[in-house]
């Protein structure tokens, strides 16, 4: 079999449509080979992750905003933690927020479920590197 480059699935959860638009556009421009799912709040994302019909379409990496209506980033993280063990694959979680509140920053840093706390405005290169690091292509080569 030839070495096939596998698509990374990234997921962005944010109530800010402009941010989601920019995020997707940038990944396109940076040539990040990824499928991007987007949800406008934590509840929508949890509903997706729980749905067995999407079990084979789980993301590799999730970027979640902190301040959102309906279900905010903290509550999402909490629910995600409970779901994590039942999910068929390893899914990494990053928090993305423009909050410079030290309480938010420390809370994210202390939470082992959150890989990193990324402050907005984001560095597109950093995000691209994160997504690329989940590129399993090389390891998958037979």
């Amino acid at each position: 079999m030839s070495a096939e480059r596998k698509m990374v699935t990234a997921c962005i959860i944010d109530d800010d449509d402009i941010f989601i638009y920019g995020f997707k556009k940038f990944m396109e421009i940076k040539g990040v080979f990824a499928e991007i799912l987007n949800f406008s709040n934590g509840q929508e994302a949890i509903d997706y992750l729980k749905d067995p019909s999407y079990a084979d379409k789980l993301p590799d990496v999730i970027f979640v905003d902190i301040n959102m209506p309906v279900m905010d980033g903290w509550e999402f993280t909490h629910n995600f933690e409970e779901l994590k063990s039942q999910m068929g694959k390893k899914v990494s979680l990053y928090a993305i927020s423009s909050s410079v509140d030290v309480n938010d920053i420390n809370r994210a840093k202390k939470n082992p479920v959150i890989e990193d706390y990324i402050l907005k405005p984001i560095s597109e290169t950093y995000i691209a590197d994160i997504i690329n690091s989940y590129q399993p292509g090389l390891r998958n080569a037979n």
Binding site: D16, I18, F19, G22, K25, F26, I29, N67, S98, S99, V100, D101, K120, P121, I122, E124
Partner: peptide
């Protein structure tokens, strides 16, 4: 905090969009 958060998110988006505009 709230004001800084809100202004930051707009300012961040603005920078984001301006960058995108230049690269598109």
């Amino acid at each position: 905090y709230i004001v800084s958060h809100n202004l930051r998110s707009h300012a961040g988006n603005l920078k984001f969009m301006v960058n995108l505009f230049e690269e598109t």
